[in-house]
Amino acid sequence: MNTFYVSLALILLLSVAAGLLRILRGPTAADRMMAAQLFGTCGVAILLLLARGFDALIVEDVALVFALLAALSTVAFVRRAWTGKITPKGRRHDHR
């Protein structure tokens, strides 16, 4: 077991937990979804670090699947939950 990689993974996990606050208080729906996507990206990094840290190369496959499918919920959000309309001022008014 490589302590260096695992402690890096721990730091990333802490940063993910800090990103949780953005999901909780993010003013718009898009902010929340982007924070969840940050979870996905950080999750890939954590998985790769754990794969090196514990010498379990199969975990790299998990990271691959994670990276492929984490985009799916964003696409679902854009297509289904985010029917924002462009207001006369040109700003995209954000409501679900």
């Binding site: 996990l13 969840a36 979870f39 975990v59 985009a71 289904r80």
Partner: peptide, 30 residues
């Protein structure tokens, strides 16, 4: 769901981590 995949990795169940990464982060959310 994404964090559950991490905990499956820690519990040395890569099969579950694969399934959860596909289902928990993608399909259930959609």
């Amino acid at each position: 769901g994404m964090l559950m995949a991490l905990s499956w990795v820690r519990l040395q169940a890569p099969d579950l981590a694969l399934a959860e990464a596909a289902i928990g982060s993608g399909l259930t959310g959609a």
